[in-house]
Amino acid sequence: MPVRRGHVAPQNTFLDTIIRKFEGQSRKFIIANARVENCAVIYCNDGFCELCGYSRAEVMQRPCTCDFLHGPRTQRRAAAQIAQALLGAEERKVEIAFYRKDGSCFLCLVDVVPVKNEDGAVIMFILNFEVVMEKDMVGSPAHDTNHRGPPTSWLAPGRAKTFRLKLPALLALTARESSVRSGGAGGAGAPGAVVVDVDLTPAAPSSESLALDEVTAMDNHVAGLGPAEERRALVGPGSPPRSAPGQLPSPRAHSLNPDASGSSCSLARTRSRESCASVRRASSADDIEAMRAGVLPPPPRHASTGAMHPLRSGLLNSTSDSDLVRYRTISKIPQITLNFVDLKGDPFLASPTSDREIIAPKIKERTHNVTEKVTQVLSLGADVLPEYKLQAPRIHRWTILHYSPFKAVWDWLILLLVIYTAVFTPYSAAFLLKETEEGPPATECGYACQPLAVVDLIVDIMFIVDILINFRTTYVNANEEVVSHPGRIAVHYFKGWFLIDMVAAIPFDLLI
């Protein structure tokens, strides 16, 4: 008679799926529990143990900040960024110097990925580790590398530091407007667009060049630039800015003055950032001319202004700041037409079709709590990747769950009947059967004279019903998954307890 339990259901295979997918890609990662103190490590794979030199037993239950890997060259700011990422709910990448158990130093890129439950609360953290440099290539500990984003994938490793954006290309926007319009339909740009040429040739750093990471940081200074100062900065030398009595002219307006920039070969870094931020506020060169004239017309309804409409929906549905990093990277690809469009465009503009998908598509409701890094690593669709929660398995109709209350009560009843059979069957065979043979035949009273025979008949009927119930009862397979398919249940029961239950259900007393 089957006594099969499996009270692990309803099970959740999400954690096993993450481990299996990460292991298949030869990654070095740990999984931490966000619900406990210090976000203790609950799993670390073999790749991480080989990377740091510690065994799994030495890593388990330690804080996922990996303070046991810190050393003299470990930056405090990087460690603080990892700790801050564990307090938030967004994906974050941090470069930090770690030390192995043998004392060797290596520069590592740590990717902190939160995993949320159905309520939107962070319950786990996945920390992925990628070695960037070994100890002989690690720089000085005073050099802070965590304020910069990861290198873009479309640049060669040897040319990542030679990417320079020439400031004269930004200063000569109005001069290039006529050349853009003359391109017409034969050019790649839309009317009114501004073409910015980027020099990728390796050259020595000069005062006129600005690194790509500095251009990325310009967006942080746009908020500090007032509207009046932006307007004066875009007017140009024809209309000098008016300053109040006793007030000095704005240095932001002076930063885009061609006369002032041409007199000296070098520009201050602050002026460069502010000038680029001011130019980015204009949607095209037409807006710059309109600002000089004193009238700013409404933005025209053409394809170039609607190019950012799908980007707005993608940004609203993005799951991490990696989408913004990807957008900034692609927006700086050289030799393309940049349409400086305000994100607050007309909502009635139709979304044009684009061959290049900048932001990841909208994630469906079932995966809105899973970050983009987890979705990318697992390579699963929205119909396959579940949320991290207890999910009731989908069972067929008329199927009994093996952990249901009805099955528990039924098993206790069958257990009592088995005990009765084990006690009274030998007793009936030894004593009652002998008395029946010696006594007179009682054929007239039937079952009324033999109450134990009636009980034995009921017990046999219950055993037959138990066999039928076992054909529709779920079970737990070797992978700790609840199986509810009727065919698989029948095959599993035939290979197991079916023969024993059938022999126990045969009414031998009635056959004798």
Rank of each mutant, 00 (worst) to 15 (best):
E365D: 13
R271F: 15
V59L: 10
S209L: 14
A188M: 07
F14D: 12
K93R: 13
V3K: 07
V295A: 14
E134Q: 07
P361Y: 01
A172H: 06
N369S: 14
K344S: 05
K166F: 05
A83I: 07
P114W: 01
N220E: 12
S331E: 09
K344A: 04
C44I: 01
S140W: 14
E289K: 02
L167G: 09
Q11S: 10
Y43L: 01
A169K: 13
R181G: 06
I336L: 10
P347A: 11
A9R: 14
R27H: 08
G149P: 09
D119V: 09
Q25G: 07
S320P: 08
S178H: 06
T375F: 14
A350Y: 01
A203T: 04
K364N: 09
R273S: 12
A9L: 06
P237A: 14
A228H: 12
D16P: 15
A34K: 06
A156P: 11
G71W: 01
C64P: 14
L380V: 03
D286S: 09
I330C: 14
R181C: 15
S178L: 04
P237S: 15
L296S: 05
C265K: 14
A285H: 10
S209W: 13
L256K: 14
V377K: 03
L15E: 01
I31F: 03
A175K: 14
H368M: 10
S322C: 07
N369T: 12
A40T: 10
Q84R: 15
D321S: 14
Q376G: 08
N33G: 06
S322F: 12
S266P: 05
E37S: 09
A223P: 13
R356A: 05
N128H: 09
M137K: 04
D46L: 05
G226I: 15
H143S: 09
E214T: 15
V8R: 11
G238N: 14
A260R: 11
S278F: 08
I18D: 01
V198W: 03
F14C: 13
E214D: 13
A360S: 04
A85L: 01
H70R: 03
L51C: 03
P386D: 05
R281T: 15
S283D: 08
A89I: 08
E23V: 03
F348R: 14
T74C: 01
G158F: 13
S318F: 09
T353N: 14
R269A: 13
K135S: 14
K28D: 05
G187R: 06
H7P: 14
S206L: 09
S207W: 15
E118P: 08
E95H: 06
A169P: 12
K166W: 07
D119R: 06
A277Y: 12
R35E: 13
L167Y: 08
M124T: 09
R252D: 15
H309P: 12
K93Q: 13
Y43K: 01
L173V: 08
G184N: 14
K93P: 06
R35M: 11
F163N: 14
V384P: 08
L225Y: 03
S313W: 01
L200E: 10
E91L: 13
L200K: 15
E130D: 08
D197Y: 01
T270E: 13
P334V: 01
S278R: 09
P237M: 14
V59R: 01
L200N: 05
D197F: 04
P297S: 07
L51E: 07
S239M: 05
M124K: 04
P141Y: 06
R271W: 15
L343I: 10
L338K: 09
K116I: 13
P249Q: 09
K21S: 13
I363S: 08
P386V: 01
T216C: 03
E357D: 10
E95G: 03
T17Y: 12
C52L: 06
R62Q: 13
V110E: 01
G345P: 08
G24E: 07
G294H: 14
E365C: 12
R56G: 01
D67H: 08
P258N: 11
T270D: 12
C108Y: 01
S140N: 11
L316E: 13
R62K: 10
D321M: 15
A282K: 14
A203D: 05
P258K: 03
G224T: 05
A382E: 15
Y327G: 14
S278C: 12
T65E: 07
P202S: 05
T162A: 06
L343V: 09
A121E: 09
L380R: 04
C276E: 10
V131P: 11
H70Q: 07
V374C: 01
S263T: 06
C66L: 14
H70L: 03
P168N: 05
H70K: 06
I82Q: 01
K166N: 05
